[in-house]
C-alpha cells in the first residue's frame, strides 16, 4: 500500500518547499543599508528647480522615498497604489526622479497623477547610487532618526503595502 501513497507524500514535501520559496524573493539581495542611516543628499526639486530638498529636511518624520522615472514601465504599475496611499494620508511620499529628463518627468506626473509631496531630481543617478539602487522602481521607508527601516525592490505591491509597509509605519509612529 505504502508504495502507492509514497509519490503523493514526496510531492507534498516538494510543494511545501515551493510554497515557502514563493514567499521569498531570490532577488532580495540583503541590503546593507537597512537599519543604517539614510545617506545624506541635497538635490533640486523637480517642479521648482530653484528650491532644494535634502534628507535633513525630513528629520523627525516617518517618510517614504520612492525612486521613479518616466522611462520605467514598472513605475506605471505601482503608480495607482502610490496615489491611493497618498490619499490615505498615512505617510508622506517623496519622489527621487532617477536619471530622467525634467520635461518628461513633469509630463508623466501630469498624465498619471502626482502622489508625491515633491520629487527631487537625481539626473546623474548619484544619490540613487548612494542608496544602492539596482534598478527602478525602489522604495525606502525612513524613520524619524533618518534610518532606513525597509527597502522595497521593484514595484510596490498591494501585499507589501498591507502586510509590511503600513504596519511598519504604524509601529514607527507609535514608538515616537
Amino acid at each position: 500500500m505504502i508504495r502507492f501513497i509514497a509519490p503523493l507524500a514526496v510531492f507534498i514535501g516538494i510543494a511545501v518547499f515551493l510554497l515557502i520559496g514563493l514567499d521569498l524573493n531570490p532577488r532580495n539581495v540583503p541590503s546593507p543599508l537597512i537599519d543604517k542611516a539614510a545617506p545624506a543628499f541635497q538635490l533640486s526639486q523637480l517642479h521648482q528647480p530653484e528650491k532644494t530638498f535634502s534628507r535633513s529636511d525630513m528629520a523627525g518624520k516617518v517618510w517614504l522615498l520612492n525612486v521613479w522615472a518616466s522611462w520605467c514601465v514598472s513605475c506605471r504599475a505601482e503608480h495607482p497604489l502610490l496615489i491611493a496611499l497618498a490619499k490615505q494620508n498615512i505617510v508622506p511620499i517623496y519622489g527621487l526622479n532617477y536619471k530622467d529628463k525634467r520635461t518628461d518627468a513633469i509630463r508623466w506626473l501630469r498624465q498619471l497623477g502626482n502622489p508625491y509631496v515633491l520629487s527631487a531630481q537625481d539626473v546623474e543617478g548619484k544619490v540613487g547610487f548612494d542608496y544602492g539602487v539596482y534598478g527602478v522602481p525602489e522604495t525606502y521607508l525612513i524613520d524619524q532618526n533618518g534610518t532606513i527601516r525597509y527597502k522595497q525592490i521593484g514595484p510596490v505591491t498591494r501585499k507589501a503595502l498591507d502586510e509590511t509597509i503600513i504596519p511598519l509605519i504604524k509601529k514607527l509612529k507609535l514608538e515616537s
Partner: peptide, 22 residues
C-alpha cells in the same frame, strides 16, 4: 538583466514613446 526591474539604459526606448504620448 531583468525584464520588469530594469536598469535605465535598457529602458531608453520608452523615452521616445513617452515624448510623443501627450
Amino acid at each position: 538583466h531583468d525584464e520588469t526591474y530594469m536598469p535605465p539604459e535598457v529602458a531608453a526606448a520608452l523615452e521616445k514613446a513617452e515624448q510623443a504620448n501627450s
